[in-house]
Design a protein around this nucleic acid. Sequence first.
DNA 1: GACCTGACCAATT
DNA 2: TAATTGGCCAGGT
Length: 107
Amino acid sequence: MEELTTFQRIYEVVKEIPYGKVATYGQVAALAGNRHLAKVVGYALHVNPNPVIIPCYRVVNAKGEVSKAFAFGGVNRQIELLEKEGVQFLEDGSVDMEVSRWAKLVF
DNA sequence: GACCTGACCAATT
DNA sequence: TAATTGGCCAGGT
């Protein structure tokens, strides 16, 4: 029952991303268990079984860039949603990881 | 039933 | 400095 698969763990972490913050694939992967799961995180979001509870748009790569294969209605839409949430973007069009990066406190 | 791919990241050569 | 490989999981062919 409590046997959460890596995918489930990834979803749990992604769902914990707070409003106005973003997390990187590597960070989510690390919180899910192993940082090597970064690729799995991308695939997990790709299958995105619950786009309603899983804010994939809050997950960006290490460069702060959103996925080009965004499946919500357009990459620009994703950026716009983040911008409305208070996420700061750079002139490069990427997320300001220095400010909007999700600081997950683990105890 | 097995092999390959996929929205990645970081270290190494 | 840049390019390549290694690592993990699940789904599709």
